[in-house]
Write a protein that binds this DNA or RNA. Sequence first.
RNA 1: AGUCUUGUGGUGUAAAGGUAGCAUGCAACACUUUGAAUGUUGCGGUCUAGGUUCGAGUCCUAGCAAGAUGACCA
Length: 436
Amino acid sequence: MSNVEETKTPLNFIEQIIEEDLKNGKHEGRVHTRFPPEPNGYLHIGHAKAITVNFELAQKYGGQTNLRMDDTNPTTEKTSYVESIMNDIKWLGFEWSGEVLYASDYFSELYEFALTLIRKGLAYVDDSTADEIAEMKGEPTLPGKESPYRSRSVEESVDLFQRMRAGEFPDGARVLRAKVDMTSPNMHMRDPILYRIKHEDHHRTAGEWCIYPMYDFAHGQSDSLEGITHSLCSLEFRHHRPLYDWLIEKLEIFPSRQIEFARMNVAYMITSKRKLRKLVEGNYVTGWDDPRMPTIAGMRRRGYPAAAIREFCRRAGVAKRDNLIEIELLEFLVRSELNKQANRVMAVLDPVKVVITNYPEDKTEMLAVENNPEDPDGGSRDVPFSREIYIEKSDFMEDPPKKFFRMGPGRNVRLKGAYILPVSYTHLTLPTKRIV
RNA sequence: AGUCUUGUGGUGUAAAGGUAGCAUGCAACACUUUGAAUGUUGCGGUCUAGGUUCGAGUCCUAGCAAGAUGACCA
């Protein structure tokens, strides 16, 4: 009768999408995700969430996860951050597919993509100033205006773009823009900037380039070049998705799919690299890995186990609504993990001497005490026991209330790993108690 | 001519028209072997108003609320 109902573990909405794709044989059943940090600071608890989701989702469906540095802005990015990022991900317990990848590895391909777009009449070089472009962009409630350079010939744009790349123009003189729709209700579709001029050394390509692609012209293209099937990002990129898809379609390249989910917010924790950097640079903390910082490195130094952080990210779930996770959940999981793996020792901070009057004066025996009651294989250690021992002052009360389960007159207590002690004390002078 | 997304116990997350569940939190009780331990019990919820349906958290309509979006950042 009682058919064993298959206990279907609930799927989050991304898993549902993936399983649907798998069912339809999309991408030959391949699942490939990526974690794309910008190397301009240390990873924090919010990144831990993105890392866990990306890596564990791929793991679950037998896929792979790339680690790709989103390094398209040479002014803010540093190699030292690349190292900290690799460190933190490894410490969290994840392994990326192959070598670390860089968006900067694709600068040549991206440059060719740009040329392709121009030749298709889908991008143009704009000589307007930043202010003019902002002005013409309009406002969310008002349509924008087309740039006078929008109708420039393909040949002229190709020539100008090549000369931008050759370093003929100063920073800000011109940009490359996609030709989409200046009246779109979506601001990101109002001829977004694809390339800007920056005469600045890059942490990896050094002085090789003086034009750099914008996020929208690097991220999706990198996803595509790597064959990423499911490109997960946070909700604020929802408005970028039409552009993400538009570029892939026009370029006729591998159709990665962007899926947005809500970032994790944790009570009392700042997850803004900008603000964390201020703490570091203002010397309010000793560094990105200060134990008070909500960075992965900081939490590591604070003693939080990686397993607890991973579990925290899992329990926070994956959904699209804004959330604020209570710190209590993290603390609960840290305790619970530490309970499993930490050895116990005894220490007395505020000692009170106890004399066990019916125990031989010159005897000392070694009693075995388990290292970890939650770990049967944790072994034991020997603790000496003799007539005079010390206990914590707060473990004794002369006139204890009913709820007090520790030492008190007329009570029996069991000493951890040792004997039951009947306390029929006769005389008490702190800091020494005499017990029969 | 704004657009998009999201509303389920205090918090987070499930329930694919059919018993609103799980976790955390809080409370009470239990406990002669550390505990911020463990065990048991309890508390507490579908944004609002209509509609469809035998039946609505779920579908429809209208509201309301919150968040995102106007960088040559990502």
